[in-house]
Amino acid sequence: MTAPIQKSAAKTKAAQQVVTGNRLIDGVVVYLDAAGGWTEKIQDARVAEGADDLEDAVATGKEGEKNRIVVEAYPIDVTRGPDGLRPVRIREKIRAEGPTVRMDLARPVGA
């Protein structure tokens, strides 16, 4: 059974979104950046503001699927705080930061 994509951006009204996916070759969590590439750091992600911008970012993300860089690109809600960008939903926080029960495997996410 495969995971249903949690399209959190469609469910809530957060002001900002980023596009994420898992890298095809190794499954690592990555985010679309402003240059159209993919980064492991959420702080370097392209932040889409408004519906048109998000649509464009998602379309670029889908190109990443076609180009075999990522699997299942989708948008997520984020907020910007003192520590930089953070996903809104817990599922995406855990994807961004690593398993909460293995701090030795945590991903650095600070600004």
Partner: peptide
């Protein structure tokens, strides 16, 4: 590919395969 990888026990989870 998805059904083929699943038949071989390979999932894609939150952080990795």
């Amino acid at each position: 590919f998805r059904p083929l990888r699943l038949m071989n026990g390979l999932y894609l989870q939150l952080h990795a395969y």
